[in-house]
Amino acid sequence: MEKERKIRRILVFGVLIILVILGFVLSITIGNVKISASEALSILTGQETGKNAAIILDLRLPRALMTFILGGALAVSGFLLQTYFSNPIAGPYILGISSGAKMAVALMLIFVVGSTGRASSIMLVLAAFVGAVISTFFIIMISRVVRNMGILLAAGIMIGYICSAITEFLIAFADDSDIVNLHGWSQGSFSGTDMGTVKYAAVIVFMTFILVMMLSKALDAFRLGETYARSVGVNVKLCRVLVILFSSILSACVTAFAGPISFIGIAVPFLVRELLKSSKPIVLVPASFLAGSVFCMFSDLLARQMFAPTELNISAVTSLFGAPIVIYMMVRRRGSHEAY
């Protein structure tokens, strides 16, 4: 059994790493202007400069890096929420956390940027974080009252609708330039990413990722529920606060830089659990990150290329692939009458 698991782990991580590299290469080379892999390589190593170099360095590389970072962040954020609510269908999008973050960013864009005309990355992230924390707080309040996970999800979706509605109102009242600013972004898209924001995202996400990894022992204990977690020495209250904090930071970061993206947070941790046949956090967290990156990179690639030059919003693609997986999860849950 242990041996089998080890082989599985090596295989899964191997395949994920190969897919990440493949996704990266495809993201950089495919587009309106086709650039060969060898040319891309010489551009990346700085041996070649020219028109294509600008396309790669200013457009495609930041975008590829951003999908890698934020896709992973979303998957880990979803994993944390699933641990917190001990509910496999929890995720930042479905619980309305992404929408909360979106609303806060919209508010910030319209009122602050509208008057000062400037938006820094850090302001965006902070606004998204505040929004994410506020809607997470509502969800936690509701989860205290109702233990039924169906109702909890419904409540999350409702919060999502409320936030989206408020965002729509705000857009209706805002000036034209803000709407243009907001509209593309609020659908979820990676277009227009530059290297500066990539740096911000990378620092925030990787620091949080490391902190989550340091929490993996406590998360491991949480698999048997709160009482048993406490009995093996976990400070349950602190751990719960940290889980929510980290998951909010991660989903806020995603929403701030790319807008709300659906289903990666739910579908990816589920798929990874199934592939690894294990729920051990120390394996699951990095595997979820990589798988989330892969999912996001290929979704973004499809969003860019399917109806090029028109770009789809990325949630359209992630929903298309993610939603059936979630439906499958729920059907299987019904079948086994178990909580997962």
Partner: peptide
Amino acid sequence: SVVTTERVKPQLM
């Protein structure tokens, strides 16, 4: 160490 009456449902353990 403790054993409780709580029913645990760990995933894939």
